[in-house]
Amino acid sequence: MTPVHDDDPRARLRAVGLRVTAPRVAVLEALADQPHATADDLATRVRQSLGSVSTQAVYDVLRACVTTGLVRRIEPAGSSARYETRAGDNHHHLVCRVCGRVADVECVVGPAPCLEPADVDGFTIDEAEVVFWGVCPDCQADRNTA
């Protein structure tokens, strides 16, 4: 799947063969402003820009965008699914154990044995998803002042 890097949501939708609709544009704009948002977060933001839009409509937009590769869905353990427009590359994520903040982290260049499975059982591997868990700087500062 080739990533689409155009910043214009309308052009991005057309590039993958999706109709340009107000909810689709609003979801992509909200994700550009708030990467790693949940569907509920996005529904709230979309309602602020469009007015009445159902949460189901937002889920439908997200499903279409994930299917076409415009949006990536990540599911950190114990957290709601989150969505981002940075799709098509093999970056990973940092997740704060305290506040749940998610941040992108670039892949390590060079050998990474933990990303090479010993037996792929006939699968063709096209992506590795690594989630690093820790405590973000803000939560560390809160812990140090408490």
Rank of each mutant, 00 (worst) to 15 (best):
M1D: 09
P3T: 02
V4A: 08
D7W: 08
D7Q: 12
P9K: 00
A11N: 12
R12Q: 14
A15P: 06
L18M: 09
L18R: 12
A22L: 12
P23E: 12
R24L: 07
R24T: 04
L28K: 01
L31Y: 00
L31Q: 00
A32S: 15
A32Y: 07
H36M: 14
D41A: 04
A43F: 02
R47L: 04
Q48V: 11
L50P: 02
L50G: 08
V53F: 03
S54Q: 08
T55R: 15
Q56N: 10
V58P: 00
L62P: 01
C65T: 13
C65M: 15
C65Y: 03
V66L: 04
T68M: 10
V71D: 06
R72N: 05
P76Q: 07
A77R: 13
S79V: 03
S79P: 01
S79C: 14
A81E: 05
E84S: 15
T85S: 08
R86E: 15
N90Q: 13
V98N: 09
C99E: 04
C99Y: 04
R101I: 08
V102H: 01
V105N: 07
E106P: 06
A112K: 07
P113E: 07
P113S: 05
E116I: 11
P117I: 08
V120P: 05
A128D: 14
F132V: 14
C136K: 02
D138W: 10
C139I: 05
A141T: 15
A146H: 13
